[in-house]
Amino acid sequence: MRKVALVTGASRGLGLELARFLAGEGHSVIATARGERDLAAAAAGLAGLEGRVVPLAGDVADAAHRAALVDAARRLGGLDLLVNNASDLGQTPLPPLAEADLDRLRRTLEVNLIAPLALVQAALPLLRERRGLVVDVSSDAALGGYPGWGAYGASKAALDLATRTLAEENRASGVGFVSVDPGDMRTRMHQDAYPGQDIGDRPLPSATLPFWAWLLEREPLEVSGRRYQAQATLWEVAP
């Protein structure tokens, strides 16, 4: 069954791996990221796959860009899957929260909490039509209280709660909402968090693909309201 997916932060790392996976499954993918050149290069690399990849560069924190993304989905026939993956790590090196730049923190909250919620608001009419699934990409930092990760972690903790709330509020409409913590991965964001350190022992983002493949075969309401760890020992639903 061909689906239409919208993936944010799709020019590299987990977002790119997901876009490649979805297009390889034959789904249409609207791929967005801020850097136009990186996104075009990423989309060119996905050109041979079965599913169509539509690159649309822009900032998800910008309302006009969000409207353009939803329009693109409408032109492809609807929307089955929204992956809010684009994230802002915040200040680097990661500062103690007591010393964090508050304007920078506002930007982190804007990208990691407000923008995904705004995209959900804009896309919800399309998602209702197809009884679709929204995936909010979270992080271990949402639970951890890890020194230095306070700004990013707080934004992801808030996103987790928004996801759970949306799941309850939209159950009757058939739209599902899940949080997914992909786990540590060898990505640029992870490298930015550990400047100068060798992160070569972290798994590549493709290590999370089994989880995504499993998730996308579930009924949205079967998983709605849950928080999964893509590299965990167990992914479960009630049978």
Binding site: P210, W214, T233, L234, W235, E236, V237, A238, P239
Partner: peptide
């Protein structure tokens, strides 16, 4: 063993890496 909890075995479906 994956489905075990202190209250007994629970119904469950998914993927397990429990070792």
């Amino acid at each position: 063993e994956t489905a075990w909890s202190p209250g007994g075995v629970r119904p469950m479906a998914g993927f397990t890496r429990h070792y």
